[in-house]
Computed example of a mutant assay.
Amino acid sequence: MAVRLRTLLQLLSLATAIGIPLSLQRVSADEAVMSATFDGKPWTASFTLAQTMQMAGKPMLNLSGTEQGSPTMTFNSMLALKDPNDLVGSYPLKTGSPANSANLNILDSGAMVGHVHFGSGEIVIDKYDAATKTISGHFDASGKDESGKPEALTDGKFSGIPVATQ
């Protein structure tokens, strides 16, 4: 429980530092799921979040998932929405832009021990269920860590992620 609370506080601190309020959604095996392969190993989020918001007058979606453990790994993306009422679409990741960006933060014992900025790849929202306000889709991303080492997130999938509105 202490690890879960520390992870939640770290995620909230990161969001507050960049000015993004978050609403977290608890993941259960029967509900929201997010997974991928990172550095050749399976990665599965312990909890996820998706939230629409306005930034600089544009509709945005923050989509992220955190795998708790040692280390704790959080995938975070910020997508510029094409239509705030229908989130379905392909969102290519771009370098040097806050919109359509993604990263992976790696924390161990509360300290940042790794950061990967993904400069290419794509997040695809295949389905938006307006009645349940959930999204499902897939993603792949490649980029570099702070030392310049190439990294990839492959075979990414997410389903049943509840979308909150700011």
Results as ranks from 00 to 15, higher is better:
Val124Pro: 00
Leu79Thr: 10
Met73Trp: 01
Gly69Thr: 10
Val88Thr: 15
Leu22Ala: 10
Val27Cys: 07
Ala141Ser: 03
Glu67His: 02
Ser70Cys: 01
Lys82Pro: 02
Leu49Ser: 11
Gly110Asp: 08
Gly69Leu: 07
Arg26Tyr: 11
His138Asp: 12
Gly114Asn: 04
Asp30Tyr: 01
Leu9Ser: 06
Ala17Thr: 12
Ser23Cys: 04
Leu63Gly: 10
Thr74Glu: 08
Ala50Ile: 10
Lys41Thr: 13
Glu67Ser: 14
Ile125Arg: 03
Asn103Lys: 10
Thr134Glu: 08
Thr16Pro: 00
Lys133Cys: 04
Phe139Glu: 02
Lys58Tyr: 04
Thr74Ile: 04
Leu49Arg: 09
Ile106His: 03
Pro98Thr: 13
Leu104Met: 15
Leu8Arg: 10
Ser142Gln: 14
His115Arg: 12
Leu61Val: 12
Ser35Gly: 02
Ser101Met: 12
Lys41Trp: 01
Leu107Asp: 12
Pro42Arg: 13
Tyr91Arg: 04
Ala15Arg: 08
Ala111Arg: 08
Asn76Met: 11
Ala130Cys: 00
Pro59Ile: 09
Thr52Trp: 08
Leu81Gly: 08
Ala141Asp: 01
Leu63Cys: 08
Ala131Ser: 13
Thr16Asn: 06
Asp83Ile: 10
Gly65Asn: 09
Gly121Tyr: 03
Tyr128Asp: 10
Ser97Ala: 13
Ser109Leu: 13
Gly114His: 04
Leu49Ala: 10
Ser64Arg: 11
Gln10Met: 11
Ala80His: 11
Met112Val: 14
Gln25Gly: 13
Asn103Ser: 15
Phe118Ile: 06
Lys133Leu: 05
Gln51His: 06
Gln54Trp: 09
Thr134Met: 03
Leu14Met: 04
Ser64Asn: 04
Leu107Val: 15
Gly89Arg: 05
Gln51Asn: 12
